[in-house]
Design a protein around this nucleic acid. Structure first.
Lengths: 260, 260
DNA sequence: GAGTGGTCTAGACCACTGG
DNA sequence: CAGTGGTCTAGACCACTCC
């Protein structure tokens, strides 16, 4: 197993990849060599090994136990169940072919809600796109999104029948959406919604309302999707908030012995 | 601002807390001192500062730009919107008082679904708890959970009317649930469900079906909750899967110049 | 006591951004 | 060019676990 300095790939990524291969041949609960042993084996420093192992721990492939060692975690039920993806990506992942019928694609003054979510002045121009979303020709969802028209000039002229909004944002505007937050609720389909989705009025719809943010944590997309609950379920992954609250601890700390 | 060695609290957590206070007085886009400047100011090494700043970046409070600096990110819409929490925790966070009516609390052979989710042999004994969940005396959700009876002896005898299952698991069995995965869907309430929740049959219910895992990534709890959609919405946070795939890269690497 | 992960130091070089 | 974040070293001490 050769690692390479003078390579674009950081050492810790190389170590991570090597460990990944090794883990694949182990069973859950099996120990992985200690940090020190790995450092010696790969000829790198302890911090570098630690960084590599840390990433695999974050990913859930390994877990650490102080004083005992590092071990292979149990495998996930499925991989990539959750994550920020566009409808197109989402459907392709499920092995379905996505397409759209564009109901509306215009520039109009931002609604109060959209303006607040996108942190724009009220009445700022936004591009509003409303689509019926299909998977293998079957209507799956209604979607309405709003983006700042000033931030994305020319966006309104794109063809959203086949193109993915997220891919346009990434390739044409170099805007990469990193995280979305919002809420999920449910409602009964109205007559109009039922007609557009080919279901009976009253059928439950899953509502996903969200704001998507770029790398700088600036809001980029405000949107709402309404999915047929008979044909769609949303994969979720919930993590325990790990951060411990030490508010107010600092003042105590400062009264203790301070540094030499 | 005094930092303390010889304290249980790691230095990087102290630096993190100090930075958190400072960030609170800055505006989005404002720069934070460079890693080197912070290291000098706090009298700690660069790696320590890096660890502190890294945590704040992970949390979305700061973002880094190579060659330019570290900056305050735009604030979140709400904090702590998402995460693995018990119903009790969840309601308390919303300022409501949680309580329960226990419909069932028995040991019985695992269903096929539960056995698979919990990786048990079929017919292994599981503790099944069914509850109506209230917030401020208003019925909010129906819940059914199953846990291995062998892993949690005596659990079936606990009183789940007021106690939180997660708190019992943590304090009595030292089982800390770290992550849950599952799906979210919707359905129309049946007559029975309507009666238990005090709503009309046909009202949409949000179904959260999940498996919760401990630190070792072993499945611990399999459960399903059905929430009234008129009184509850589920906070969600979706992240872009960040991991880049470097499979096959290792072999190339090993043919390059290897270490001196 | 030997080994483990967790923290920490005081430096270093690199690629990249800005003026 | 000076400054930034990103990576990396070769050590160190600590609390903890297992024997």
């Amino acid at each position: 197993m050769g690692l390479s300095r003078r390579n674009v790939i950081p050492l810790y990524v190389q170590v991570e990849a090597a460990l990944r291969q090794r883990i694949a041949q182990l069973r859950p609960g099996d120990p992985v060599p200690s940090d020190r042993a790995l450092a010696a084996e790969f000829g790198v420093s302890g911090m570098t090994v630690r960084q590599a192992v840390g990433r695999l721990v974050d990913e859930g492939l390994l877990y650490r136990a102080v004083g005992r060692g590092t071990f292979v975690a149990s495998p996930r039920m499925e991989k990539d169940m959750s994550g920020l993806t566009s409808f197109s990506e989402d459907m392709r992942r499920r092995g379905l072919r996505p397409s759209s019928h564009v109901l509306e694609c215009t520039i109009q003054p931002a609604s109060a809600e959209a303006a607040e979510a996108l942190r724009l002045a009220t009445d700022s121009p936004v591009v509003v796109i409303r689509r019926v979303r299909f998977a293998d020709e079957i209507p799956m969802a209604l979607e309405r999104v709003a983006l700042s028209a000033l931030s994305f000039p020319g966006l309104v002229d794109e063809d959203f029948t086949t193109q993915s909004l997220y891919e346009i944002l990434e390739h044409r505007y170099h805007a990469r959406l990193m995280v979305a937050r919002g809420t999920l609720s449910a409602t009964a389909a109205t007559a109009l919604e039922g007609r557009l989705l080919g279901i009976r009025p009253g059928t439950p719809l899953i509502i996903v309302r969200r704001v998507a943010f770029n790398e700088r944590n600036e809001p980029v997309e405000y949107g709402e999707s309404r999915y047929r609950s008979d044909r769609y379920s949303v994969p979720i992954e919930l993590r325990r908030p790990p951060r411990l609250d030490i508010a107010g601890l600092l003042s105590d700390v400062s009264t203790n012995v301070s540094r030499a």
